[in-house]
Simulated scan of single mutants.
Amino acid sequence: MARVTTTNRRDALRAGAGLVAGGALAAGCGTGPTTAAARSTAPRTTPGSAAPQTTPGSAVRSSGKASPTTRPAPAPRAYPGQPAQITHGPRTHPRVALTFHGQGDPALAHTLLTTAERHGAHLTVLAVGTWLDEHPDIARRILDGGHDLGNHTQRHISVNDLPEADARKEITDCADRLNRLTGSIGTWFRPSRAATASALVAALARRAGYPHVLSYDVDSLDYTRPGAAAVTRKVLSEVREGSVVSLHFGYEDTVAALPDVLTELGRRKLRAVTTTELLS
């Protein structure tokens, strides 16, 4: 009788070990890219509904959608004394903001974020909504690295040229994505395919909850693919205290240029900070 009990206990232990191993494999598979089928069956939340609470550090649900931590992302705020469309910060402090249009290969985005963090720098990322749909974990990665995250419209089309209803939808759809992923609509809004917003788009952004439109005073022109050396020269020849620099995820030239840009900024005693810190 005792022999049977021991055998049963041994079998149960083996079965339990198998379940643990199977669970570990399932968890490992869950960290990879989510298929379209999985995304289509994932539960949706309505805009403005409370975000589900999770434990800190949890980034992606089994459905593949990033879920907010218990502390939501910072919300937009008004900066008294700043214009409705901000092109730069105070010229009296040794700080600059490197702002990135968020779309393209997420591997390049991760490399740029990591490079910035190794240099003690923080970025501002204006994300495209469809990019967040395809790579939902990137929103929390940006925020967990101490960077700003904002709205660059849903589809990255020429928002200034759209009818009012369509322009509003471009802004609010991206805001809804950000809110669902982070608990906030994001800290900043930047129009797509334009350095500044039209009067209509600026008004629609305010109604959506963004007190300011974030423009820039230094354009790296990295999207023209001029080569890393040209991107570096363009930025460093124009940047100064308070500058807001326009850059892009998704370009190898930008990845190659960023270490040199950050090194030279450091030599000039210019700190690369989030736009929120630049204006604080």
Rank of each mutant, 00 (worst) to 15 (best):
L149W: 13
R155E: 02
L258G: 11
P259Y: 14
N160P: 01
L204M: 04
V273S: 09
F189Q: 14
L162C: 09
R206P: 01
V60P: 00
D217K: 00
G89I: 13
P226N: 05
R193F: 08
A42W: 12
E238T: 00
I171H: 08
A51K: 04
V201E: 10
L181H: 11
A38G: 15
G28R: 05
L181A: 14
A36H: 14
T276V: 10
W131M: 11
P191S: 14
L162Y: 06
T55G: 13
N179W: 05
G48M: 03
A228F: 14
T54R: 11
H101R: 05
G30I: 03
D176W: 10
L13D: 03
H156Q: 02
S243L: 04
V96W: 00
Y210C: 08
V60M: 09
T130S: 01
L108I: 04
A194V: 11
R225W: 11
R177N: 13
K234E: 10
T6V: 08
T172E: 03
V255D: 12
A42G: 09
A12C: 06
L247F: 06
S280Y: 05
D133Q: 09
A256Q: 15
L221F: 06
A228W: 13
T7I: 07
L270S: 12
G28A: 15
A107N: 14
T224F: 07
E252S: 08
G28Q: 06
T54D: 04
T263W: 00
H212M: 04
G145L: 05
E117T: 14
L19S: 02
R268Y: 07
D222H: 03
L19E: 02
A97S: 10
T5F: 09
V128T: 14
S40I: 06
A15N: 05
P259D: 12
G30M: 12
S243E: 03
V125H: 01
T153Q: 04
T187M: 14
E241I: 00
P259T: 15
